[in-house]
Amino acid sequence: MSKHIERVQPGEKIFDWLLLLLSIGILFEAFRIDGGLKLNSAGSFPVGLGLVMLASSLAILFSHRYKRRAEHLHHAAEEFQAFIRDHFKPYIVVFSVAAILYLAAIVWFSFYLSTAVFLAAMFIFLRRGKIISSLIITALAIGAIYALFTLVFRVYLP
């Protein structure tokens, strides 16, 4: 009878170690609130939460002890490659960078202009061409955003 082996995703262990570091950081910050451990003060509950996070992140790491990486991944370098392949696909990277640039552009230029450029660029990129229909969809989207947020909801736009 073959024993069922649980698998970890590429990068999962590293991520869980980062969570442990985050827990330690939060615990450290929580201790700094009162400068020590007190039962009823501004820092007591954050310390408690920090301890819970520390304990649960240790439990998560402990749960990895019987888990193995996927069968086709033989060593750490291959796992790293698989991680990059899975999560840094070109369209994910391009979209993320474009989203960050879009946020920066909102501050530098106007909201409508940067939104129009972002939407048009992303529609064309994610739909692999189809320029005319992408531009039409962008125009419709901008019109809908204007009608909805400026005329109906009357919210402040960036």
């Binding site: 939104t115 972002f118 939407l119 992303m122 994610l126 919210v155």
Partner: peptide
């Protein structure tokens, strides 16, 4: 997806 991002920003 791009529309969701714009809605989130607003």
């Amino acid at each position: 997806i791009p529309l969701i991002v714009v809605l989130c920003v607003v």
